[in-house]
Design a protein around this nucleic acid. Structure first.
Length: 137
DNA sequence: GCCAACGTTGGC
DNA sequence: GCCAACGTTGGC
């Protein structure tokens, strides 16, 4: 099966794309939302993710890749939620802002635009292609 | 099982 | 700082 694409949000104040580049690899944990957790569980090794900065920046700044599929989130005492592990792939040549995304009708059905609070969301192949064109990546 | 109250996220 | 969206909690 072809690799899927996703978008993850992070507040750069707490963990930025630069932090991921510095760390080389990170455990993506702390997701406490069932819809987001479903997406985490669906991720496969090699899937690529857009790394979005919420609150500060409000833009997609880079691409990351899944290197370990869902496993129990050790920070979750209830044991209900999962984490994955990510590595950085590359920063975008040009970050794609939320405003850019909203202005592009090709992205009007994008999950993260339709449900703004969702911290992990799927990205279709068409949306991915449109975003890559916007990022000149 | 319903629903009001409350908390959190995140854009503006 | 405000507010909309939406998930969770708790009383009934």
């Amino acid at each position: 099966m072809a690799t899927a694409h996703w978008l993850v949000k992070s507040e750069p104040n707490s963990y930025s794309f630069d932090d991921l580049v510095r760390d080389g690899r990170t455990v993506w944990d702390g997701v406490r939302n069932n819809a987001a957790a479903l997406h985490l569980r669906a991720m496969k090794e090699g899937d690529e993710l857009l790394f979005y900065h919420s609150q500060e920046g409000k833009e997609i700044v880079g691409i990351a890749r899944v290197v370990r599929t869902a496993f129990p989130d050790s920070s979750d005492p209830s044991g209900r939620f999962v984490a994955v592990e990510l590595v950085p792939v590359r920063p975008l040549k040009r970050p794609v802002t939320l405003g850019d995304m909203k202005a592009n009708t090709a992205l009007s059905n994008m999950a993260m635009l339709r449900q703004s609070r969702l911290s992990v969301s799927p990205v279709t192949a068409d949306e991915w292609a449109a975003l890559m064109a916007m990022a000149e990546a």
